[in-house]
Design a binder for these strands. Sequence first.
DNA 1: CTTAAAACAGACAGGTCTGTATACTTTCGG
DNA 2: CCGAAAGTATACAGACCTGTCTGTTTTAAG
Lengths: 195, 195
Amino acid sequence: MSKTRAKSSEARQRIVETAERLFYSEGVRAVGIDRIIAEAAVAKMSLYNHFPSKDDLILAVLQYREEKYGSMFMKWMERHAAAGMDRLEAFFAALKNWFESPGFRGCMFINARVELADARHEGSKFSVRHKERFHEMLAQIITQTAGEEAAKTMTPAIALLVEGAIVTAVMQQSSQAADVARDAALAWIAQAKEK
Amino acid sequence: MSKTRAKSSEARQRIVETAERLFYSEGVRAVGIDRIIAEAAVAKMSLYNHFPSKDDLILAVLQYREEKYGSMFMKWMERHAAAGMDRLEAFFAALKNWFESPGFRGCMFINARVELADARHEGSKFSVRHKERFHEMLAQIITQTAGEEAAKTMTPAIALLVEGAIVTAVMQQSSQAADVARDAALAWIAQAKEK
DNA sequence: CTTAAAACAGACAGGTCTGTATACTTTCGG
DNA sequence: CCGAAAGTATACAGACCTGTCTGTTTTAAG
């Protein structure tokens, strides 16, 4: 039963974490294999034993990133929710935390989709599906704050506000866009409730 | 007085136009110099006589793109305005035209900012300034539709809607986001006018 | 202790990249 | 018609890229 080796390979984990850091901060095309193995301190063959090609590594990094940032975002949100915010307010507060986190350079999935250019690349496809999942999570949050009816009609527009805020935060190198998006979304929901 | 040569160099123009097409569709890092000179049918030295380095060419392409798409966007808008739309409606209709134009792959300035990664790159700096100019134009359009007061408070949020729509149109490979952004922006303005 | 998987180390093949150098050809103003 | 400017053609340097190959060392299960 027991695995033939360690937990899930320390070398593999080191490769994925190093690649994530480098790919995110400099781009998937700008960072080469040699750089990754040097900074992860692994042999080239260790990388190619775990990942048949760089494209496979890119995909693995995106999967890892979704898991890691999914749980990190949830933790941020819960902290704000515990401090008395409703779910949607907590979401935007967490968004701002993210924008202000060191080395922030936007959404890795948008960036990957842009850099890979080819929509058929597995990394592109995964990024597109990630956005679907992200918007689904957002829909649930809006449901908890404004009810199912309101969520159905307002989620698409609020999703645009969020995506726009991410991109704008990168361009302006400022987290201010998170506040603008929050105010607009909350004002809109408040108005809908009045009716 | 007369120029020492042609108008403004046909070879140079061919280089810029070819580079724009390739950079936009495949990315500035993915497309090499050799590819550009081959498709532009110029000698390598012609390129390097006009542009000291690839980075300079990238900047020149971004400048060219801003001019070209600025006037193209205006033309689209005017066509819709002539058909009876107010300025902001015409803006979103033009946005949709853009999303549906063949080979659409998002905003080249966002893409360049993502691909170049380095914020100090001249291409990055120009892209950031382009967004400032773009948002200024948007502010003027909103002013014409909703008045100066309303424009001041609503432009930042509507700008997020627009940026979000651009990114989402790429991810979903659909122009639907333009409609979502338009409906949200118009509803918001209508509500502000009621008060 | 044996053994096989896993990781390490490093050379290398074959291609691509940016940028330079050299020599030839075309164009056109004066 | 001369000469400078602009463009062409091509070879090449040197770096970097992905991926392969060969061989050694470490690790841990049985």
